[in-house]
Design a protein around this nucleic acid. Structure first.
Length: 198
DNA sequence: AAGGCGATTGCCT
DNA sequence: GGCAATCGCCTTT
């Protein structure tokens, strides 16, 4: 680099290396793409939540385990977990290697491959208006619509050759961004670590 | 070795 | 809005 442009946290690699609560709002509006099954499904990340290691709501609160190992790996990788006996959710790992932080992707606005997403969520039946609205507005729904699975555990989300990857999105209108407590947790409700756009 | 419960979803009232 | 479904993980005996 010969220009005098200062190095700022403007690339995804820089962003995911930040602590999760700093990275999360910066990743809102990013593009996530899945090429699973030979079909491209792509969407804009519209809701996410940050989790840190000293956060009682986090899977990493009690230290590394086999389940949460990816959270302690390099940033920008996939941490998947299985919950409630039937649902999978995906995270973007954050912070430096060795630090158990990540961002739960809670909602995506599908922009490409919506037919494939509908097929994965509802099968061949024509979706109702309600079903279309609920296509990918929850963490388990996002995973299902994108066709992500535990096979993607630990994979690099910044590798555009991977089956699942993220890329920068268009800037968001700050007026459309809302910050709230996280959803579905019994502890750690004091922090405003959920961000979403309308 | 066993039990409780969860970063959820969808259906039922 | 309330609650059942369903099972792997982690904590506790």
């Amino acid at each position: 680099m010969t220009s005098g442009t200062p190095k700022i946290a403007n690339s995804l690699g820089d962003i995911v290396a930040l602590p999760a609560p700093q990275a999360a709002p910066l990743l809102l509006g990013s593009i996530i793409t899945s090429t699973h099954g030979g079909a491209v499904v792509r969407g804009i990340i519209t809701e996410l939540e940050a989790y840190t290691q000293d956060d009682p709501a986090s899977h990493t609160f009690r230290g590394p385990t086999k389940r949460n190992a990816a959270m302690f790996g390099p940033p920008g990788h996939i941490y998947m977990y299985f919950t409630y006996g039937m649902h999978y959710c995906m995270n973007i790992t954050c912070g430096p290697q060795g630090r158990g932080e990540g961002i739960l992707i809670r909602a995506v606005q599908i922009t490409d491959g919506i037919e494939t997403a509908i097929q994965r969520r509802y099968g061949d039946r024509e979706p109702t208006a309600a079903q279309l609205k609920n296509l990918s507005n929850g963490p388990g729904k996002v995973v299902q619509a994108l066709g992500v699975s535990m096979a993607d555990y630990g994979n690099d989300l910044l590798d555009t050759q991977a089956n699942v990857f993220i890329q920068p999105g268009d800037p968001l209108d700050p007026k459309r961004v809302h910050q709230t407590p996280r959803i579905g947790i019994s502890r750690g409700q004091d922090t405003l670590w959920r961000w979403h756009v309308e």
